[in-house]
């Protein structure tokens, strides 16, 4: 049971972080705090993706050159085998494809998502700034109250 938990502890921590961010979005009535919570939530989702992409014993997905020094000081038989391996690597333009690399696809997805995240955050913040200029507050309760009072007074300006 404990080993099972140890195998999955990453997911559980990420879920706790995600729910913390979501809680801030739901419970807080301040718009900037809400956006900070949204940012935490977003970063936790990135963590989930990157956790999935990890391959144990793997390297970052930057291809390594198949260096010649790897084959120095080996017995002739292994050298021949290594030369065959090098021929195979030469087909891959001299990159060593025998190493385990982590999965690059989630990295690409999250890389762009981070930058898009900051762009959308900027939109949200500028909306908050405009709301503050019109209502004089960024607390949701007071904004709702101002709207309610205004609607009671009618549409006549």
């Amino acid at each position: 049971m404990f080993s099972e938990f140890l195998a999955d502890y990453n997911y559980i921590v990420v879920i706790i972080l995600m729910m913390t961010g979501l809680y801030v979005v739901f419970a807080s009535r301040n718009l900037i705090k809400k956006l900070a919570g949204l940012s935490v939530f977003q970063t936790s989702v990135f963590l989930l993706y990157i956790t999935i992409s990890k391959v144990s014993g793997g390297q970052p997905p930057i291809l390594e050159k198949a260096y010649a020094k790897d084959y120095a000081g080996l017995a002739p038989e292994t050298l021949i085998a290594a030369a065959e391996g090098a021929g195979k690597a030469a087909k891959g333009h001299g990159y060593n494809l025998d190493i385990t690399y982590s999965n690059p696809l989630p990295h690409v997805l999250i890389l762009t998502a981070i930058v898009v995240g900051v762009a959308t955050l900027a939109i949200g913040l500028s909306l908050v700034v405009r709301i503050r200029e019109v209502y004089g507050t960024i607390e949701e309760d007071q904004i709702e109250k101002a709207d309610y009072i205004y609607n009671l007074e009618g549409t006549a300006d």
Binding site: P60, I62, L111, T112, I114, V115
Partner: peptide, 11 residues
């Protein structure tokens, strides 16, 4: 050749 690219450099 290493970590990096247009997004990071732009920021």
């Amino acid at each position: 050749y290493g970590p990096g690219g247009g997004f990071q450099a732009g920021v």
